[in-house]
Nucleic acid binder design. Structure first.
Length: 271
DNA sequence: CAGCGCCCCTGCCCGC
DNA sequence: TGCGGGCAGGGGCGCT
């Protein structure tokens, strides 16, 4: 479900009801996510104030003065803000209740997500330590990206989804960025010219920013914490459009599998 | 280290 | 209508 724009939409959505609020109670109905939720989390969090809500890659970071609650939504997770006594439904695994009467509810059918706690500095936390730059920062520049390309022999699509190179670009936006940049997903990374890398970097930023503006992409069941769907799905040029005509030239969109993930492209527009 | 394939899990859609 | 197979927005991990 969530790539960077969806996680960012979630972060913005929960902030008004969660920031500076005190945790009153934590209910865990299902501990088994990607990693087991610490059994001690309810007692750890009780009474703590969430004093910052940020994002690193696709991880949401809820800071308290004792440590960070780290939430990942995996493929199918979402967070909802609900009135405290809303009855739970299937796959509603965790509730975090606040003093202000609102509830932060974690829902994740496939349970590929995670909810972890760390008291060490967030930058050295194991899962975050080796991550590449955020795509929407200046650190993710054409020069940087082209240097990364030159030393890699994988396809450009696979490189875009490698968190050591750049974070937050998942399958939808990798395909869409390559489409907009007129680069085939199968191109070997080190074959990109500086101009192509520059263009690709620019388009990744443009597409992610536009997707954030539109509340992300709702394919099946993603929605913001207030229940609103994301509207970027209307902008998709290639993702999920196998067999349909390319909007620019009419050639049917192709679908192939790379690294166990679907890639979509126009064989006329992309080279 | 780079590259690659394997999984974790549920739900839905499609073809028979 | 029922059932089996394939596929889905992620990404850490273990192997070569």
């Amino acid at each position: 479900m969530p790539e960077l724009p969806e996680v960012e939409t979630t972060r913005k959505g929960i902030t008004p009801k969660v920031l500076n609020q005190t945790v009153q109670k934590v209910i865990i109905r299902q501990h088994q996510l990607r990693w087991e939720i610490p059994t001690s989390l309810p007692e750890t969090l009780a009474g703590l104030v969430i004093n910052k809500i940020s994002r690193r890659a696709k991880y949401l970071l809820l800071k308290t003065n004792k440590g960070h609650l780290i939430i990942h939504l995996g493929m199918s997770g979402n967070l909802k803000i609900l009135p405290r006594d809303t009855p739970p439904q299937k796959h509603d695994h965790v509730d975090i209740e606040f003093d202000n009467g609102w509830l932060l509810r974690y829902h994740d059918p496939r349970r590929f997500g995670a909810m972890l706690w760390t008291e060490e500095p967030i930058k050295t936390f194991k899962l975050l330590r080796h991550l590449g730059p955020e795509p929407l920062t200046d650190e993710f520049s054409a020069d940087y990206f082209h240097r990364q390309c030159l030393k890699r022999k994988v396809s450009i699509k696979v490189l875009l989804m490698d968190n050591k190179c750049v974070v937050g670009v998942g399958n939808i936006y990798a395909n869409e960025s390559l489409s907009k940049s007129q680069i085939l997903p199968t191109r070997i990374a080190n074959s990109l010219s500086l101009q192509e890398a520059e263009n690709l970097v620019k388009n990744i930023k443009v597409i992610l920013e536009k997707a954030i503006e539109q509340g992300g992409t709702t394919l099946k069941d993603f929605s913001a914490p207030d229940g609103k769907p994301g509207y970027f799905v209307q902008q998709l040029a290639v993702y999920g459009r196998a067999g349909q005509d390319c909007g620019a030239c009419g050639t049917p969109i192709q679908k192939i599998i790379q690294a166990q993930r679907a890639s979509y492209y126009c064989s006329t527009c992309q080279n």
